[in-house]
Design a protein around this nucleic acid. Structure first.
Length: 954
RNA sequence: GCUCGGGUGGCGGAACGGUUUACGCAGAGGACUUAAAAUCCUUGCCCUUAAUUGGGUUGUGGGUUCGAAUCCCACCCCGAGCACCA
């Protein structure tokens, strides 16, 4: 059978009949745009494109047959760097290169046999498209959402050019391998941070994968904290200097602040400020210059040792306790986050802890772990007492066992423990308790096991609630020598030594046990969790969360700060110093400043250019098109210049889906009525790599256009599915260097489009992707050939085949549900099972064959069309209605009853559907096998799962 | 380091509280054929047994349950994203 011929035949018929041209149905409510991410025209379709477009086509065709008015659009995201690189390398025009690629890829895309609506195809380099990209930019400019600001960019000092992130490879310039540095330039920005709150809050309404939602949340990175003002004192002049503001989410730890840290970027300005009088400004400047020289790579290095320099001569004053603390500059603090300054609390922050250890700075504990005993929680209404406690943890170094006491009355296992008396230190208290309770008196102090722990529990033996502040002390036993102990105590307690592995909250009654365990094992670290406050003035004893609320109130009242929301998300730098992009429609005039191009002059077309290499420092190659650059100012008519930067390609793709609804409109970017028919997009399928960029930018654009009342929806994509990646046969990512790239054209030539489509759908769950397995193709090909051969079984007469009918209807149900849930692999397996069964029959009615073909048609559109028309049908199979299953027909008459004994399979037996537990019991208990298994034992219990199994418990 | 996925035959995977391994690939045996390919049929983890007898088995170890691949806890490994975000 010649699959290739069949493919071409039907692709041609579909095209001439315009089968997949979508019309705007106004009456039908079932308009459905199935959106897939449009490709970059890199020149060659790879297997990933097939996965991204041919597999969702199954869903598109299914939805269409289900009665929806489906639009399955496609286009090209055609601006971008590779075209420019190709132009430089091959000395051809990027437009020519790109357009050739589009032509070639269009041909390749058509070979998939997908139901794309080619009448709506768009391309972002089409000036009728980018006219509207420019128009939207101007709208944003007018709203103040597009602005200019200085920002750091990748700069190659050798090529004297700005580099995109993709052009920086391991910190080096892609072209000349010199070290890339960060340089400040003025750039066009979008104020996406204005929308940060809405972008985060509206996520919850989206039917998106959890991972994508989380990725966006983390990317936006909202954190609610406090700005605290620290006054600064210059010691030499004894005068007040400008204060320093820090950002913190842990205001509750402020009494533990022992120094302040400023990011290097912040300090440059400070040194210039004469009011500060930093005594070691030379050393400080030196440090700042060093950090500047560090490449991006070194800065990101993990486990990098922290460095910093103290600013001599000035001190910061903690607003709460008026404590004077030193100020450091250190590059472990980020300049672009928060205020670029932090209060360091080494006791409760890992990074500060590490820094304080290195530079020998004081570590002051102000938060202690706060636990509520799950096993003995406080009883409401009982008296509550507070006390200081000590736990003595005594280890016998001979056998590494620990000394415990078991109360015979309460069945508790505890360490020797008790209250600390007044004027007694913890270690002596611990020694005393050990001696009193166990008699052991020769102990070697190892260490006090960290700070106090606050625990709330109900003390049964005293009938009161206890709030205990407990310190643990670790000893080694020197020898077995004992003093005499209290008789009564001795009788009611058992002394025992238990192994380390049993030292946990299951065995021991102490609520603090988890913390002791960690401290016994672990290295010293900061305690960074919430807890209860100690040594914190009027806030002592509060819990972290309560303290934060009260302390902000205090700050506000005393004018030392306020709460503040901070985002990780930065404003979007949209300008690129590149040729192959949309020109930014702005004119720079010496008199009027930045003047937007009047709407009537749009689009500002990209001028033809021969040389794409930038010459002037930091200028776009467009600056070389002198005739194009020099214009009259639209306002004052004096000579002026065009903006020469172009836009980030993410701008182009932030609104493309809107254009699909009205791709040829010359008056607006898309007609509102048409958008109402199709948008927002109910399902958008694409790669997980767009989780944070493209998807976020599209949401931002949509919200802006919504606020401008230009669109009626404020979220662009209601549903979203991420597809997996097809790997090489070796399970590695496909790449030319690995030589594991699969060429779809070759596969199509060998097996036909249907086989390739279906194989990809069958390989695994769509979200997961998986390795390419050439053998798997054979299986699908065989399946399709067998489906074709079924025609030899056709009988013209009526045949009733109840059994087959049940299977058919089960398959309708399964295939429909699986397609809707993107489980194409199991849908195909259901079709295979069905085919296996049909083959077992000697005859097949034409009705049943046609039913089977309809189920197959979304997966193998060409072949099913071919057979369908061979059967004498004039209309296309894809215009047929999707079959409905009959719920009455999917029930089998018999089923296999599983008989278990104690949950283990012992027998299976075919029984009538719908039998009762009684009947099932009778059958099961009378099986010879089962009788043998039960022997003489009594049946304790019988569990019956209707239509499935019976479990006999003996 | 943090977050999110995921560990099931020789392989891709199915089952997501109830028969572990559906469906497909590869393998083995057979039929057809002068022969091969294609096609069709049979088979399908490990140990054990006279026996399709019995036992084991879903990364490891525990727990919940009549019953766990599935739920809970701890650990190990693989992948992806973020990465000193105070």
């Amino acid at each position: 059978m010649n699959f290739g011929k069949i493919d071409k035949k039907w692709q041609k018929i579909w095209e001439t009949k315009k089968n997949y041209k979508t019309i705007d149905k106004t009456k039908s409510k079932k308009n459905f745009m199935l959106l897939v991410e449009f490709p970059y025209p890199s020149g060659d379709l790879h297997i990933g494109h097939w996965y991204a477009y041919a597999v969702p086509d199954i869903l598109a065709r299914y939805l269409k047959m289900k009665g929806n008015n489906v639009m399955y659009p496609i286009g090209f995201d055609a601006f971008g760097l590779p075209a420019e690189n190709a132009a430089i390398k091959r000395k051809i025009n990027p437009a020519v290169w790109t357009e050739n690629n589009i032509k070639f890829m269009t041909k390749q895309l058509k070979s998939m046999g997908a139901s794309f609506d080619w009448s709506r195809v768009i391309s972002t380099i089409d000036h009728q498209y980018y006219k509207w990209t420019q128009w939207i930019f101007l709208k944003m400019y007018q709203k103040g959402l597009a602005y200019r600001a200085k920002t750091m960019v990748n700069w190659c000092p050798n090529c004297k050019t700005v580099l995109a992130n993709e052009q920086v490879i391991a910190g080096l310039c892609e072209r000349c391998d010199s070290e890339v540095i960060q340089k400040e330039f003025e750039q066009w920005m979008f104020r996406i941070t204005d929308y940060a709150d809405r972008l985060i809050d509206d996520i919850k309404d989206l039917d998106w994968p959890q991972t994508t939602k989380l990725a966006q949340k983390n990317w936006i990175g909202r954190s609610e904290g406090v700005i605290v003002k620290f006054d600064v004192k210059c010691q030499m002049l004894n005068v007040k200097c400008p204060s320093i503001e820090v950002f913190t989410t842990r205001l509750d730890t402020i009494f533990g602040c022992t120094y302040l840290v400023l990011a290097p970027e912040r300090v440059s300005a400070l040194i210039q400020n004469s009011e500060f009088k930093i005594q070691n400004s030379g050393e400080v400047e030196n440090y700042i210059n060093q950090t500047k020289k560090k490449t991006e790579l070194q800065r990101l290095e993990i486990d990098k040792e922290k460095t910093g320099v103290k600013l001599e001569g000035i001190k910061a004053i903690n607003p709460f306790d008026k404590e004077e603390v030193p100020i450091f500059v250190a590059d472990y603090v980020l300049g672009h986050y928060g205020t670029g300054a932090v209060m360091a609390v080494p006791a409760h922050d890992e990074r500060d802890f590490e820094f304080a250890k290195k530079y020998n700075l004081p570590i002051k504990e102000v938060i202690i772990p706060d636990v509520i005993d799950k096993k003995n929680p406080p009883v409401p209404g009982k008296k509550t007492v507070e006390r200081r406690n000590v736990h003595a943890i005594v280890r016998n170094p001979q056998n590494n066992k620990f000394l415990c006491l078991k109360s015979k009355k309460f069945l508790w296992t505890t360490f020797p423990m008790g209250g600390i008396e007044e004027n007694e230190d913890v270690v002596s208290a611990a020694r005393r308790e050990v001696e009193e309770e166990t008699g052991y008196k020769n102990l070697k102090l190892i260490k006090v096991l960290g700070g106090k722990v606050r625990a709330e529990y109900f003390a049964k033996h005293k009938d009161e609630n206890m709030i205990a502040h407990t310190t643990a002390v670790l000893f080694d036993l020197i020898n077995e020598e004992k003093s005499e102990i209290d008789k009564e105590w001795e009788e009611s307690h058992e002394i025992m030594w238990i192994g380390e592995h049993k030292l946990n909250y299951n065995t021991m009654v102490h609520a603090e046990m988890d913390i002791w365990e960690k401290r016994l094992k672990g290295d010293e670290t900061a305690y960074a969790d919430d807890g209860a406050l100690v040594d914190s003035g009027q806030f002592t004893n509060l819990k972290s969360s309560e303290a934060r609320v009260k302390m902000v109130q205090w700050l506000k009242k005393n004018n030392f700060g306020n709460s503040k929301k901070i985002f990780k998300l930065h404003d979007w730098v949209l300008s690129r110093q590149r040729y192959w992009g949309v020109p930014i429609p702005i004119i720079k005039c010496d008199n009027c400043g930045y003047v937007p191009v009047p709407e009537k002059d749009l689009p500002i077309k990209l001028p033809p250019l021969k040389d794409f290499l930038p010459t002037e420092e930091g200028k776009s190659p467009l600056a070389k098109a002198k005739n194009w650059v020099n214009v009259k100012c639209p306002k004052c008519k004096n000579p002026a210049q065009r903006e020469t930067d172009t836009m980030d390609t993410f701008v182009d793709s932030s609104w493309y889906f809107m254009r699909y609804t009205d791709p040829k409109n010359k008056k607006v970017f898309a007609d509102k009525k048409k958008m109402k028919l199709w948008l927002p997009v109910p399902m958008y399928i694409g790669g997980a790599e767009h989780n944070t960029m493209h998807l976020l930018y599209s949401r931002f654009f949509t919200k802006v256009l919504y606020d401008l009342k230009l669109v009626h929806f404020n979220e662009p994509f209601i549903g979203r599915k991420n597809h997996g990646i097809i790997l090489g046969t070796d399970g590695q990512k496909m790449s030319k260097s690995r030589g594991n790239v699969v060429d779809p054209d070759k596969e199509v030539k060998k097996f036909g489009a249907d086989t390739v489509r279906m194989y990809l759908a069958f390989a695994g769950p769509y979200e997961q992707g998986g390795p390419w397995n050439p053998g798997g193709m054979l299986g699908i090909r065989r399946f399709l050939e067998r489906a074709y051969k079924l025609k030899s079984k056709i009988s013209s007469g009526k045949i009733s085949n109840k059994n087959l009918e049940v299977l058919l209807h089960q398959a309708i149900k399964k295939v429909s549900e699986d397609i809707e849930n993107f489980r194409f692999n199991t849908a195909i397996s259901a079709l295979m099972i069905l085919l296996n069964e049909i083959e077992k029959q000697s005859q097949l009615s034409i009705v049943n064959y046609q039913l089977f073909l309809k189920l197959l048609s979304p997966f193998a559109p060409h072949l099913s069309e071919e057979i369908w028309s061979n059967l004498g049908n004039k209309k296309n199979i894809h215009l047929e209605k999707w079959p409905e299953y009959n719920p009455k027909l999917i029930k089998k008459e018999n089923f296999e009853l599983i008989i278990q004994i104690n949950g283990k399979l012992r027998d299976k037996i075919s029984v009538e559907s719908g039998i009762s537990q009684k009947e099932a019991e009778n059958i099961a208990l009378n099986q010879e096998k089962i009788k043998n298994f039960i022997g003489g034992k009594t049946v304790k219990k019988i569990i019956f799962v209707p239509e499935k199994l019976i479990n006999i418990v003996i």
